[in-house]
Amino acid sequence: MALNTPQITPTKKITVRAIGEELPRGDYQRCPQCDMLFSLPEINSHQSAYCPRCQAKIRDGRDWSLTRLAAMAFTMLLLMPFAWGEPLLHIWLLGIRIDANVMQGIWQMTKQGDAITGSMVFFCVIGAPLILVTSIAYLWFGNRLGMNLRPVLLMLERLKEWVMLDIYLVGIGVASIKVQDYAHIQAGVGLFSFVALVILTTVTLSHLNVEELWERFYPQRPATRRDEKLRVCLGCHFTGYPDQRGRCPRCHIPLRLRRRHSLQKCWAALLASIVLLLPANLLPISIIYLNGGRQEDTILSGIMSLASSNIAVAGIVFIASILVPFTKVIVMFTLLLSIHFKCQQGLRTRILLLRMVTWIGRWSMLDLFVISLTMSLINRDQILAFTMGPAAFYFGAAVILTILAVEWLDSRLLWDAHESGNARFDD
């Protein structure tokens, strides 16, 4: 018995066209964080690309023209004298008006014999932002004059995390709450300039795509075929072959399989920071003279006294001054041990922890910024005066060393310790 099946006739004509040209192939790229070699397709503007294995951002879609970056830099340069030299806060102490600005706080630190601690604050609040705007201006002028731009481009990517104007702005709020127990506070004209400078700096850093600047100024022929001998440069993120001198053909720094002496430098910085954190938390970090009496505060006791007036601000200072430094030390110690013992479990967790400490590390400088600003506000000789204690130097040095330890660690070593050939990683 035959089955009668109805015929289905399409209502619209289906047209099949042959592909007349070869589909576009992607360029081969190595991930600078996990060293995976993959094919990167062509990316349009405002599109980002991520590593298929570790999800690290390979290409950032946010990109401004150099002219727009230069305009932002010149605007920031105009704001800087007002943000640093004009009063941020006014207080009335014992019937006398006192003005506080950024430069005055750094000068008070240096004047009291601790120039190293003052230079830490100076670099993060004044030096690094000033280098940022002058570097962008150098790129703008240098591109037109045919100057060598490689050193500036190499420095810009590392400079971003040292620009800490946003953290200093939080420190202004913390210092205001600490001082309000002794005097009446009012915002100064410099505060508005400083807030504007923070906003412009944040926007500029978020749109400063150094890798795209490398592509514009020093374009290189990408690798179009897969080759395990391809290496990625950690300076400019170019994937290719080393030249005859073993250097990256684009930025001219040595092109090595792994960062040289990464573990040794990381261990040295980490152990030194552990040693410095002990006096930083045991010795007094601030000293207040009130009517001839002397009151010393460690980091913890200062947080407890701050909690009596504002528990939320005390929580912020606790996280930045105690929780973050010790968390960074514990995480980095764990990561280094996992590399030495070739741990194969929990790779995803370790990668996330490394990215976390990379982002939060700079916030530990908050305590030094609060001390710097408070020193310029309260300084009335023996009637009422505020000065920093010996722990300030140890704390600042420990924070900087932990930042350097994270920067010096080559994250690809975590993958080397893991089993080879993993296309995915999980716990």
Score class of each variant (00 low, 15 high):
1 M>V: 01
1 M>E: 00
2 A>L: 04
3 L>F: 06
4 N>R: 07
4 N>I: 03
5 T>L: 07
5 T>C: 10
6 P>E: 07
6 P>C: 05
7 Q>P: 08
8 I>H: 08
10 P>V: 07
10 P>R: 08
11 T>E: 07
12 K>I: 05
13 K>Y: 06
15 T>W: 10
16 V>C: 08
17 R>P: 07
18 A>N: 07
18 A>S: 07
20 G>D: 07
21 E>Q: 08
22 E>N: 09
22 E>Y: 08
26 G>H: 11
26 G>I: 13
29 Q>P: 05
30 R>I: 08
32 P>L: 10
33 Q>A: 08
33 Q>C: 09
37 L>M: 10
38 F>W: 04
38 F>T: 05
39 S>K: 06
41 P>M: 07
42 E>F: 04
46 H>V: 06
47 Q>S: 04
48 S>P: 03
48 S>G: 10
52 P>S: 05
55 Q>D: 09
58 I>L: 06
59 R>H: 08
63 D>T: 15
64 W>P: 10
66 L>C: 06
67 T>Y: 10
68 R>M: 04
69 L>I: 09
69 L>T: 03
69 L>K: 04
71 A>M: 07
72 M>F: 02
73 A>N: 08
74 F>V: 07
74 F>E: 03
75 T>M: 08
76 M>I: 05
77 L>R: 01
78 L>H: 05
79 L>M: 08
82 F>R: 05
82 F>D: 04
83 A>H: 02
84 W>G: 07
86 E>Q: 03
87 P>Y: 07
88 L>H: 03
90 H>V: 04
91 I>N: 11
91 I>L: 03
92 W>Y: 02
92 W>M: 02
93 L>V: 02
94 L>V: 03
96 I>P: 03
97 R>K: 15
98 I>A: 02
98 I>E: 01
98 I>L: 04
100 A>W: 00
102 V>Q: 07
102 V>K: 01
103 M>S: 04
107 W>L: 10
107 W>D: 15
108 Q>L: 15
108 Q>S: 13
108 Q>I: 15
108 Q>G: 14
108 Q>D: 14
109 M>A: 11
110 T>W: 01
110 T>L: 05
113 G>C: 09
114 D>L: 06
115 A>F: 03
115 A>T: 11
117 T>C: 10
117 T>M: 03
117 T>A: 11
118 G>Y: 01
118 G>N: 03
118 G>P: 04
121 V>T: 06
122 F>Q: 09
127 G>L: 01
128 A>S: 14
129 P>E: 09
129 P>Y: 04
131 I>D: 01
132 L>A: 10
132 L>F: 13
134 T>A: 14
134 T>H: 12
134 T>R: 00
134 T>P: 05
135 S>Y: 01
136 I>E: 04
137 A>I: 05
142 G>V: 06
148 N>F: 04
148 N>Y: 03
149 L>V: 14
152 V>P: 05
153 L>Q: 12
153 L>P: 02
156 L>M: 09
158 R>C: 14
159 L>I: 06
159 L>Y: 01
161 E>H: 10
162 W>C: 03
162 W>R: 02
165 L>V: 12
166 D>A: 15
167 I>N: 03
167 I>V: 14
168 Y>M: 13
168 Y>R: 00
168 Y>W: 10
169 L>P: 05
172 I>M: 12
172 I>Y: 02
173 G>E: 01
173 G>H: 02
173 G>S: 06
176 S>T: 10
176 S>G: 07
177 I>D: 03
179 V>A: 05
183 A>D: 00
183 A>L: 02
184 H>L: 05
185 I>H: 02
185 I>Y: 02
186 Q>F: 09
186 Q>S: 09
187 A>D: 09
187 A>E: 09
188 G>P: 02
191 L>H: 04
191 L>I: 07
192 F>T: 12
192 F>R: 08
192 F>L: 14
195 V>S: 11
196 A>D: 09
197 L>V: 07
198 V>F: 15
199 I>G: 10
204 T>I: 05
204 T>S: 14
205 L>K: 14
207 H>Y: 15
210 V>A: 14
210 V>C: 14
210 V>H: 15
211 E>G: 12
212 E>R: 15
212 E>N: 15
212 E>Y: 15
216 R>P: 06
218 Y>L: 08
219 P>Q: 14
222 P>E: 14
223 A>L: 13
223 A>Y: 13
226 R>L: 14
226 R>E: 14
226 R>T: 12
227 D>P: 12
228 E>V: 13
228 E>Y: 11
229 K>N: 13
231 R>H: 09
231 R>I: 14
232 V>R: 12
232 V>P: 05
233 C>N: 00
235 G>N: 06
235 G>M: 02
235 G>K: 03
239 T>P: 10
240 G>F: 09
242 P>W: 10
245 R>G: 13
245 R>I: 11
249 P>W: 12
251 C>Y: 01
251 C>Q: 00
251 C>P: 00
253 I>D: 04
253 I>K: 01
254 P>C: 04
259 R>T: 11
259 R>N: 13
260 R>D: 09
261 H>S: 09
261 H>Q: 10
261 H>I: 03
263 L>C: 13
263 L>F: 10
264 Q>A: 05
265 K>A: 05
266 C>H: 04
270 L>I: 13
270 L>D: 10
271 L>Y: 08
272 A>N: 03
273 S>I: 06
274 I>G: 15
274 I>D: 10
275 V>E: 11
275 V>L: 09
279 P>F: 08
280 A>S: 13
283 L>K: 12
283 L>M: 11
285 I>H: 00
286 S>G: 11
290 L>D: 00
291 N>W: 15
292 G>V: 09
292 G>E: 02
292 G>D: 01
292 G>Q: 09
294 R>K: 09
297 D>E: 02
297 D>T: 05
298 T>D: 10
298 T>R: 10
298 T>N: 12
299 I>W: 14
299 I>L: 12
299 I>S: 09
299 I>M: 15
300 L>M: 15
304 M>K: 13
305 S>G: 12
306 L>K: 00
306 L>Y: 00
306 L>E: 00
307 A>C: 15
307 A>F: 13
307 A>Y: 12
308 S>D: 10
310 N>A: 10
317 V>Q: 00
318 F>T: 06
319 I>K: 10
319 I>N: 13
320 A>T: 04
320 A>V: 15
320 A>G: 15
320 A>F: 15
322 I>S: 10
325 P>A: 07
325 P>W: 05
325 P>C: 04
326 F>K: 07
329 V>Q: 11
330 I>L: 12
330 I>P: 01
331 V>G: 14
332 M>W: 06
332 M>I: 11
333 F>K: 14
336 L>N: 09
336 L>Q: 11
339 I>Q: 09
340 H>T: 12
341 F>E: 10
341 F>N: 12
342 K>F: 13
343 C>S: 13
344 Q>H: 11
344 Q>Y: 14
344 Q>N: 15
345 Q>K: 15
346 G>V: 14
346 G>M: 13
346 G>T: 14
350 R>L: 09
352 L>T: 13
353 L>S: 13
354 L>I: 10
355 R>P: 05
356 M>W: 10
358 T>C: 12
359 W>S: 14
360 I>N: 02
361 G>K: 01
362 R>K: 07
364 S>D: 00
365 M>S: 04
365 M>F: 05
366 L>E: 10
366 L>I: 11
371 I>F: 13
373 L>R: 01
373 L>C: 02
373 L>D: 06
374 T>N: 06
374 T>E: 00
374 T>L: 03
378 I>L: 03
378 I>R: 00
379 N>E: 02
379 N>W: 01
384 L>W: 02
384 L>Y: 02
387 T>F: 06
387 T>S: 06
387 T>H: 06
388 M>S: 08
389 G>Y: 00
390 P>S: 09
391 A>V: 02
393 F>E: 10
393 F>K: 10
396 G>A: 06
397 A>W: 11
397 A>T: 05
398 A>P: 04
401 L>E: 11
402 T>A: 01
403 I>R: 03
405 A>R: 00
406 V>F: 10
406 V>W: 09
407 E>F: 10
410 D>G: 00
412 R>P: 01
416 D>T: 10
417 A>M: 10
417 A>E: 11
419 E>C: 13
419 E>F: 09
419 E>H: 13
421 G>E: 02
421 G>V: 03
427 D>Q: 12
